[in-house]
């Protein structure tokens, strides 16, 4: 009986807090579908209430920084920046799980420590080098940077997963004379698909949401990524919050949709990543 009372109280407080967390999102949705003139006393002011899609149309086809182009550019960056590190980090993770060699533990630990490096530490040197070799304003440059910067946590995440796979399967294949590559691609990777999805969605969202590396690498107005276009949309003298809200929704729609469909993979991914610091 007592337990039931408790859970009702929990339920009420819990939903109240979740509602508070949802409130800012409701705000920008409300602002985005109404003309700015209607919300200057707050989006909850419904004295006049007209729905419009004008904000979305304007943000999508903005005269200087169209989000439509930004969305395409971000896709061009995010997909290879997910697949490439997923591939090379899985290879290394498998090596760290199964192969025996000298100083393995120490090398692994040193690699892990690199994970705390702040983006500024990486970005400043990469900018200098890219400037010299002409990789600024190049998609390839940014994709390689994301691969290097995101590779370590994916490696750690995949190693956590690989060390949970029983050895028997691989040993049976080894007896049959299969090489390490065959074992990895034919036996281990198919088993790892759920883990690859977890790491993949997190890396994709991370790259999509990235702003710092994008600003370091991309300055050509045509090549700007979607996140870079958002701050450029506020006017010089006044801020149209309806337009900014619509633009914000377009910028976040891809990661949010991905999250809504695959939230369990996200949670699993974050835990594997969180435990990384233990």
């Amino acid at each position: 009986m007592k337990k039931k009372n408790n859970s009702l109280v929990f339920y009420i407080i819990g939903s109240l807090l979740a509602a508070i967390w949802l409130f800012p999102i409701i705000g920008i949705v409300m602002a985005s579908v109404r003309p700015f003139s209607e919300i200057i006393r707050g989006w909850w002011d419904t004295e006049t209430f007209n729905l419009t899609q004008q904000n979305f149309i304007y943000a999508w086809a903005h005269p200087n920084f169209p989000l439509s182009k930004g969305l395409l550019n971000s896709m061009f960056i995010s997909i290879p920046s997910t697949l490439l590190p997923l591939f090379i980090s899985s290879l290394a993770a498998y090596g760290f799980t199964r192969f025996k060699f000298r100083f393995k533990e120490i090398i692994f630990l040193l690699v892990l420590l690199l994970m705390v490096t702040p983006a500024q530490m990486i970005g400043l040197s990469v900018y200098k080098i890219y400037q010299k070799i002409g990789l600024l304003n190049s998609y390839i440059g940014l994709i390689l940077l994301h691969t290097g910067a995101g590779g370590v946590w994916i490696m750690f995440f995949m190693r956590n997963f690989f060390s949970g796979i029983p050895l028997e399967l691989e040993e049976a294949a080894k007896v049959d004379g299969a090489s390490n590559f065959i074992i990895f691609f034919k036996i281990v990777l198919p088993l790892a698909i759920p883990a690859l999805l977890s790491a993949g969605v997190l890396q994709f969202v991370w790259v999509w949401n990235d702003f710092f590396y994008a600003t370091i690498c991309m300055s050509d107005p045509v090549k700007l990524l979607i996140t870079q276009r958002l701050p450029l949309m506020r006017g010089t003298y006044w801020v149209d919050f309806s337009l900014l809200s619509a633009a914000s929704i377009i910028v976040m729609i891809v990661p949010v949709a991905l999250f809504l469909v695959m939230n369990k993979f996200f949670f699993r991914g974050v835990l594997g990543w969180g435990i990384s610091s233990k």
């Binding site: 967390w21 958002l230 701050p231 919050f241 900014l244 949010v256 996200f266």
Partner: peptide, 27 residues
């Protein structure tokens, strides 16, 4: 819902900050 904050780009959170804390318009 609560985890959504981790999913949306931080740059959007920055715009949201302006929207939440602006006089008259902000909640």
């Amino acid at each position: 819902v609560i985890f959504m904050g981790m999913i949306i780009p931080m740059i959007v959170a920055g715009v949201l900050t302006r929207f939440l804390f602006e006089a008259n318009i902000g909640i």
